[in-house]
Design a protein around this nucleic acid. Structure first.
Length: 572
RNA sequence: GCGCCUGUAGCUCAGUUGGAUAGAGCGUUUGGUUGCGGACCAAAAGGUCAGGGGUUCGAGUCCCUUCAGGCGUACCA
């Protein structure tokens, strides 16, 4: 990556200056290379001279001068400037920038890939909502975050698996099973006793079973029926969750059952390991994880005094399975903020199992409000994800959810998302892609220029400020992917997508690609060069949209319109 | 009480391991197309970066503290 090359260039200059005595021998400081906010400060800048000033006992400007004089001059740098109070500003050469267009087209959608992960096996687990109800809209936030993060990590060289953990064990299951049986009977005209703890979503499952399998369970005794129809009901909910996530364009590699950890003895095995490491104690009739010995505030129950295991013990077994059984060296869990209290004891359990807690990253995502209101079951205003998918498509939901940092509470304004759809950043970004596609269609229709001919465009003809401005945005993709993968801050992707779209629109406005209707091309060679540039821009825009799990449309179609091809918008 | 998150323009939010005059979208005001799709572009207005103290060449960013909001603090998950 060019940024790293520049960083090394600076470093080499400092070393050279130390070697010849113009700079005193010092520890090498971190060399931070950044993009100046103002274009006149060049493409890259470093403030390293100011950092060294105190230790070197020299004025920052003097050090900057020394660095400049010891700097090699590779072909990709066209100018090096010193600016007060001690910045070293570097400018990329026009030739290097324009040549990048060719490289991007050659790389295609692999442009932007970096090798941060070096093939390391990573797992991202997300959503993992209880299968006792339809997914609420809020689950979409963790869903989009996890899915985009997984894509970003793949682009950064990790081998990534997406996983959904199904909480199909535990005390809630019995309650849910009884509810399914209750609603099933009720639907068929019986008047069974109302369950102690109501689970309204069991009604959905009961109706599905009735629709698909009829009344065949009616002849069973209560005990038999609960044992058979209950799990079938859970299956119906899982199917519904699967459908909703599918519509949000999230695809998992693996759906992992909590129940399986009990069935295959993993839970017992994990408890044994914890006992062997001396972190288990019996008191008050229950089995405890003695996490106070590991610096935690309190101990936690693993098996209740009534003999029923807690969620905690199966979760420990689950993580043992992730790291030991399946060998992931990097695991990322996306949890709702209401689970934050579980993080320290989960980390403590890692330590007790002789695993490195730092290999487990838990990202908490704050709540989602709709139109300024909290969604709470108690308020009865939880909006299902599928309702939002029906109202606004997957793409706007994904973009908006991905664009915010998970640390902030997110107020999703439905009216805004609908009414402003034409002014929405989502469409702005997609429109940029569609606009390029439109120009390509015109190039072919009017002038018979096929996409395969773009490669003949002479990149030396490029050089206007908006052309170079667009290329400068293109070259950022690898940096953005690396930053997002390193920090897990995937909201940098939509931000970048917007800036890229903006650079494209500015270019479109200022530099004409084709001629007017019914007119010959005023400068065919220049048109070809610009078409080649647009092909690179289209490639990068598509890549960026795909990282976000969005479609890269060939044309934009307003509601009620028919596309140029008389078909639905084609998506890649 | 303690722990985690948040507080930046009227609203929703960015702000790259501390850098140059704090940015964007929406909203408001104004201007632009005999033209490749106007779902566009250009410009203006709008800020005590919650308050206070500290660290340093330099703080929205790091440390301390106060205030405000959210979440958590179960033999629930």
């Amino acid at each position: 990556m060019i940024k790293d090359e520049i960083s090394n260039l600076i470093k080499d200059a400092i070393i050279a200056a130390m070697d010849d005595g113009t700079l005193p021998e010092l520890n090498m400081p971190d060399i931070v290379v950044e993009h100046p906010t103002k274009p006149e400060h060049g493409d890259y800048a470093t403030g390293v001279a100011m950092k060294m000033a105190r230790a070197a006992k020299l004025a920052p400007l003097k050090i900057a001068e020394i660095i400049k004089h010891h700097l090699e001059s590779p072909p990709y740098i066209s100018a090096v400037e010193i600016a007060p109070p001690g910045f070293v500003n570097l400018r990329l050469s026009k030739e290097w920038l324009t040549n990048l267009v060719g490289e991007i087209i050659q790389a295609g959608e692999t442009f932007g890939n970096v090798d941060l992960g070096k093939g390391e096996k990573a797992q991202v687990e997300f959503v993992s909502a209880n299968p006792t109800g339809l997914l609420p809209f809020a689950s979409g936030r963790g869903g989009v975050l996890g899915d985009v993060l997984a894509s970003v990590l793949e682009a950064a060289g990790y081998e990534v698996e997406r996983e959904y953990y199904i909480n199909d064990a535990g005390s809630r299951m019995d309650v849910f099973y009884k509810n399914v049986w209750f609603y099933y009977q009720k639907e068929l005209g019986r008047q069974p006793a109302t369950p102690d703890a109501p689970y309204p979503t069991a009604e959905y499952a009961a109706k599905e079973i009735l629709r698909e399998e009829g009344d065949k369970y009616l002849k069973l005794t209560d005990k038999e029926a609960i044992a058979t129809i209950g799990p079938v009901g859970i299956g119906k909910i899982i199917e519904a969750i699967h459908t909703d996530l599918d519509r949000l364009k999230i695809e998992y590699n693996h759906w992992f059952s909590e129940q399986s950890l009990f069935a295959d003895g993993s839970v017992d095995h994990t408890l044994k390991l914890l006992r062997e490491s001396g972190h288990v104690a019996e008191k008050e009739g229950a089995v405890w994880f003695v996490s106070t010995a590991l610096g935690q505030e309190k101990d936690n129950v693993l098996i209740r005094s009534n003999g029923v295991p807690t969620y905690f013990i199966s979760d420990i077994a689950y993580h043992h399975n992730k790291f030991v059984t399946r060998g992931f060296s990097k695991v990322i869990n996306i949890w709702g903020a209401d689970h934050q209290g579980h993080i320290p004891r989960m980390k403590a359990a890692m330590t007790a199992l002789h695993l490195n807690p730092d290999d487990l990253t838990i990202i908490t995502v704050q709540m989602v409000m709709i139109n300024g209101k909290k969604m709470k079951k108690a308020h009865g205003n939880v909006i299902p994800l599928r309702d939002m998918l029906n109202q606004i498509g997957a793409d706007p939901i994904r973009y908006n959810l991905a664009a915010r940092s998970p640390d902030t509470q997110f107020d999703f304004n439905v009216d805004l998302a609908l009414e402003q759809s034409s002014e929405n950043p989502v469409f702005y970004v997609q429109y940029a892609h569609a606009r390029i596609a439109s120009i390509f269609r015109k190039a072919k229709e009017r002038y018979g220029i096929e996409e395969t001919a773009f490669i003949e465009g002479d990149l030396n003809l490029l050089g206007t400020s908006s052309e170079l401005g667009l290329i400068r945005q293109l070259l950022l993709l690898p940096e953005v992917i690396e930053d997002a993968a390193r920090t897990y801050e995937i909201h940098r992707i939509p931000q970048y997508a917007y800036r890229l779209a903006e650079a494209l629109q500015v270019f479109y406005e200022r530099d004409r690609v084709l001629g007017a209707k019914d007119q010959p091309l005023p400068d065919p060679a220049l048109s070809l060069a610009r078409l080649r540039l647009l092909l690179a821009a289209k490639t990068v825009l598509a890549r960026t949209l795909h990282l976000m799990g969005m479609t890269a449309p060939e044309e934009m179609i307003r509601e009620g319109e028919i596309g140029e091809n008389g078909e639905e918008s084609e998506s890649v």
